[in-house]
């Protein structure tokens, strides 16, 4: 029963955000601020996460492919394709489900329980347009940027760890990566990042916007936002793989 209530209220929230998006110009500043918070401020952790994902993948793949007749460029192929199709998008999304999702849910949850959303409404703002739409749009716009950062950082991490440990020479890594590189993989990754950006921000907005019960309620909303975002990212990842591959 609660599920239907949730789905209904969620859809209503998103509908409201889309319906009132004609006032886009009015809330342009909010979008910019949210883009900074979601995209720009997340870049360090994303570059770090991507870099180490690539580095670890290269070392572990070379450890797993011990047979002598497998050429070293195979490792480059495996690492680069995994990064572009799957890991750059999913790892960064999972990291940001915690970082961005929790932040959004806390912000909106605090505003909800301290009547700041009511205050906005009573001043004549459309609180959904003002609070939800910029956050969701920022997620959709900035996640591809985050994907690019994670992918490039991952490739650099892979190259560097292959070079430093002697597992894969740089030239072999690049040769392997180029052999399997296809623009379709990148567009698949970008589509994923769009979807993940939408999932994280919209779920977190929903959880925060409808938070009740004081500080404890905000804490609950935050936890639920992060956990639900992670779950729906994995589900969406599966569905997208099923639909697009």
């Amino acid at each position: 029963m609660q599920l239907f209530v949730d789905v209904g209220r969620y859809c209503r929230l998103i509908y409201e955000a889309i319906r009132s998006s004609t006032e886009f110009g009015m809330y342009w500043k909010n979008i910019i601020i949210e883009m900074v918070k979601t995209g720009y401020d997340s870049l360090p952790i994303i570059i770090l996460a991507g870099f180490f994902t690539g580095a670890v993948m290269t070392i572990q793949t070379s450890y797993q492919l011990v047979a002598g007749f497998i050429p070293p460029e195979t490792i480059g192929s495996i690492v680069s394709q995994s990064l572009l199709i799957e890991l750059a998008a999913v790892i960064s999304a999972l990291v940001l489900a915690g970082r961005v999702g929790a932040r959004i849910a806390t912000e909106l949850g605090t505003m909800a329980v301290s009547e700041q959303i009511d205050a906005l409404e009573s001043m004549g703002f459309n609180s959904v347009t003002f609070l939800v739409m910029p956050r969701v749009l920022a997620g959709i716009f900035m996640f591809p940027v985050i994907y690019v950062a994670a992918a490039v950082a991952g490739m650099s991490g892979g190259l560097l760890s292959g070079y430093m440990t002697g597992a894969v020479p740089v030239a072999d890594f690049m040769l392997g990566a180029r052999q399997v590189f296809s623009p379709a993989d990148v567009s698949f990754g970008v589509i994923k990042s769009f979807v993940f950006g939408y999932i994280i921000t919209s779920i977190s907005c929903y959880k925060g916007y409808f938070a009740t019960g004081g500080a404890e309620g905000v804490g609950q909303a935050t936890t639920q936002a992060a956990v639900l975002s992670c779950i729906y990212i994995l589900v969406a990842d599966f569905v997208l793989a099923f639909l697009l591959l």
Binding site: T110, M111, E115, Q116, D118, A119, S122, M123, G124, N126
Partner: peptide, 19 residues
Amino acid sequence: LRRLRQRFGVLFQGAALFD
């Protein structure tokens, strides 16, 4: 309605200032 709401000033219980 939003214009109507602007005819009301509201002082909320916790002041509801934007943090």
